[in-house]
């Protein structure tokens, strides 16, 4: 595939996606087990919280899946950045020689 970003951008992409994969995977797991600490982050109104516990459950589930899908997208981004990085590094010896 063609090289379309330089060494800095691909490094940036690698760091960002590694971070994203780790953190989003963990956060997905935390949403899945319905962590209390994330209760303010789930978008459920206060009345629903008291009256419809099933709504809260589904919201937690939804955010967990969102996090995991995003982690998956970051895996793709990581692969792309790594491939670009590889292209950036590889021709170096030929230029120098």
């Amino acid at each position: 595939m063609k090289r379309f970003c330089g060494p800095t951008l691909s490094t940036c992409g690698i760091i960002m996606s590694v971070w994203g994969i780790i953190q989003l995977a963990i956060m997905g797991a935390l949403f899945h087990v319905r962590s209390v600490n994330l209760v303010e982050d789930v978008s459920v109104s206060e009345e629903d919280f008291a009256l419809h516990p099933d709504l809260v459950d589904s919201a937690y589930k939804q955010q967990a899946y969102n996090c995991w899908v995003c982690a998956g997208i970051y895996v793709l981004l990581l692969a792309l950045s790594a491939q670009q990085m590889w292209l950036n590094i590889k021709p170096k010896p030929y230029i120098a020689a």
């Binding site: 789930v42 978008s43 939804q62 955010q63």
Partner: peptide
């Protein structure tokens, strides 16, 4: 996390 669906 404000969108409660796949759009998020």
């Amino acid at each position: 996390f404000s969108i409660n669906g796949w759009g998020g």
